[in-house]
Design a protein around this nucleic acid. Structure first.
Lengths: 214, 214
DNA sequence: GTTGACATAGGTGAAAATACCTAGAAAGAT
DNA sequence: ATCTTTCTAGGTATTTTCACCTATGTCAAC
């Protein structure tokens, strides 16, 4: 019996997956988690064989959660379940220790196959993302270093969130009761840390990391 | 027997919902759709009593799809199933003709209750979003008019996509082999159409509308 | 055939973003 | 105790955004 932990911030999605998995012979859902911190804790106590991991979760995202979980117990197999066939997500979560990457556009049958594959220790990638891995292998492309929220201080995250919501430096300064120059300094610092150079990039990053929603 | 059509661009989510609904007595899933155009067509041929409608779908989004479907057949009850408790989404899709609004964070049991409620012609809103409607009722706030991609020309959509991906006006001009001033004019025009005033807002809009991904 | 929408592009000006610099106060770590 | 980090904020300069204006050629609609 393969024990499975489901991590996704949408309860309806968790319940749907749990019901589908209940119909798979040999698979048993032993727990659910709604954010990154929960899944790290649940992995520690439940010691599941497989974790189905959503990437976009509030708080700690799926990539960081995977890094921590696999760091603690490399025997746990993580299957990333993502909305996006984005090369950065694929490379980042694989480097963080995930063995599988399945798109939400895929059929459930593919997810089941991925689970069966990773329990035997072999990787499984959705066809649409397998190409990225091959490309990087062939081209010896050094993947973009993983940028994550963990690089930012809490104040910087706060500034980033407000920037991504469309506020100007002056407005943020008023909101937080600090000087406009201070906000600009924070913005510059976090841009340097993330190696980003425009509000558009910051906005996308903030959404990816769950700091704000679209 | 309540006939149900599921519209969501993620196949795993559709299958999960279908399985969960199959266990509800008196409910029958008669079809699925993966984007807005599909659901409009499916609604016409299948004539379901209820449509579970994801808001963020490629092509035609859930709000526009709802507007068209309810415009054709007001007897069809639409339950919006959304990731976001965003007041604009709530007001827009309700004005487009949806009767229900359920968050993906909600339990499946709540979705089932919403379906039962709307088949009897009564609205159902997740508690987290009901407040918006009450507020607008109380304050007599005129809701922000629905902004959609349909307002923009194809050239404007192209510019918007590139802006949202972090490119500057000068870079876009080079990319499209037109003048920087032209790009700026397009940007200004689409900002006026959408009543938005910053790159951050445009970026979020572009992601919401599926022009680009995070 | 005139009207209107669109893509193109130029001018002007204020505001904001981007990118550097320095620097002090406070808090935490080795 | 010293060092580092963080938050704070000021200076300076360049580039970009944002918000108006006008204007021309094209093309489809009426």
């Amino acid at each position: 019996m393969t024990t499975i932990l489901i991590a996704d911030d949408h309860r309806v999605v968790r319940e749907g997956l749990r019901t589908l998995l209940a119909q798979e012979p040999g698979m048993e859902v032993v727990g659910e988690a709604a954010d990154g911190h929960e899944v790290v804790a649940a992995a520690r106590t439940l010691q599941p064989e497989v974790i189905i991991m959503d990437i976009a979760m509030p708080g700690l995202n799926g990539i960081e959660a995977t890094r921590q979980i696999v760091g603690e117990n490399p025997a746990i197999r993580v299957v990333a379940l993502s909305m996006y066939a984005d090369r950065r997500f694929v490379t980042q979560i694989l480097r963080a220790g995930a063995l599988g990457y399945v798109l939400k556009e895929a059929a459930f049958e593919e997810l089941a196959r991925a689970i069966q594959t990773v329990v035997s220790g072999k990787p499984y990638l959705s066809p649409a993302v397998a190409g990225f891995v091959v490309e990087e292998f062939v081209q010896q492309v050094s993947p973009a270093p993983a940028k994550s929220l963990a690089l930012l201080t809490s104040r910087e995250q706060e500034i980033l969130k407000l920037l991504a919501e469309g506020m100007r430096a002056r407005e943020i300064a008023q909101e937080l009761s600090i000087g406009q120059k201070t906000v600009e300094a924070h913005r510059q610092n976090l841009m340097n840390k993330l190696d980003m150079h425009s509000i558009a990039e910051l906005t996308r990053f903030a959404i990816r990391e769950g700091l704000t929603t679209v």
